[in-house]
Design a protein around this nucleic acid. Structure first.
Length: 270
DNA sequence: ATCCAGGAAGTCG
DNA sequence: CGACTTCATGGA
């Protein structure tokens, strides 16, 4: 056991498979039974969970925060369990943790995610890293805004980004040119959502994903096609994304982001 | 083959 | 404001 290893003995609130497969991260791979390789920014860690969980890396502090290990998910689940439609979803995804990821990486990742399938999203992001990210020991870092801004739309089209290619080059340029990705930390969820929506390729849903997965704002509720299905199960009716979001945020309040992950994961895997 | 995917932008009323 | 259409790509 190296000094930098993080060891999680009590895994009632930690399941690496559920945490990675619940749609909040795209750069990871299963390398063996119970073993996963996870990438964030320019870093990598190896997570093995078989009974206890062990996180191996050369930056213990970074991954401790990444996996949100100071947050008490037992308490969050207890509180949510009293709210409607949550009991089964929590039981199904009881090991999910909401990661603390890099704002720029989430921005680019969820622009790519729009109207797209998860395997294809992973492929596009992987090719962006291979092409533009700094070469590390056996992998590539997520590229900087400057490296991405240096390429034009045609480059991202060639990577298979489809019509999102223009969004990628434009938004990378905006960030390289000074768009402040620290600002959302100091804004309310609604204000931060508006602010992010000024970027090309970012709409209300993508902005909510960035706010939840990079800034850990839990008073947001990303509404995608799966959540639309959940809403219909709950209420028996259709609705606009805006009214669905309003209904769900009023139901789950400040724990909306957590509720969303449990509901999304259980619906998508069932 | 037709539908669909962690939707957003553009246009029209 | 809301509704409606278009936008690449590839897996099912």
């Amino acid at each position: 056991m190296a000094d930098n290893d993080i060891i999680i003995k009590d895994t009632k609130d930690f399941d690496i498979r559920q945490t990675l497969d619940c749609g909040q991260i795209f750069r990871y791979a299963q390398t063996d039974e119970n073993t996963y390789e996870v990438f964030s920014k320019d870093k990598r860690c190896i997570v093995k969970q078989d009974g206890i969980a062990v996180i191996k890396s050369d930056d213990r502090e970074y991954w401790h925060r990444f996996f949100d290990l100071d947050n008490d998910y037992g308490q969050i689940k207890d509180e949510l369990a009293n709210k409607p439609f949550m009991k089964d979803a929590i039981e199904y995804g009881k090991g999910i943790r909401i990661l603390n990821q890099d704002p720029y990486e989430m921005l680019i990742s969820f622009i790519v995610s729009a109207n797209n399938h998860i395997p294809r999203i992973k492929g596009i992001l992987s090719r962006i890293c291979e092409g533009l990210g700094e070469g590390k020991d056996g992998y590539h870092a997520f590229p900087s805004p400057e490296a991405m801004a240096a390429k034009d739309e045609a480059y991202y089209t060639a990577l298979g980004a489809g019509y999102r290619a223009a969004y990628l080059s434009e938004t990378a340029k905006a960030v390289a040119d000074g768009f402040d990705l620290e600002k959302p930390r100091y804004l309310s969820g609604d204000e931060a959502n508006k602010y992010l929506c000024t970027l090309k390729g970012v709409g209300p849903k993508v902005a909510d994903c960035i706010l939840l997965f990079a800034y850990h704002k839990s008073d947001v509720f990303p509404v995608d096609t799966w959540i639309r299905k959940v809403y219909k199960d709950m209420t028996g009716k259709e609705g606009s994304n805006k009214e669905i979001r309003k209904y769900l945020v009023s139901t789950y309040g400040n724990l909306s982001g957590y509720a969303q992950q449990y509901l999304f994961f259980s619906k998508r895997e069932s």
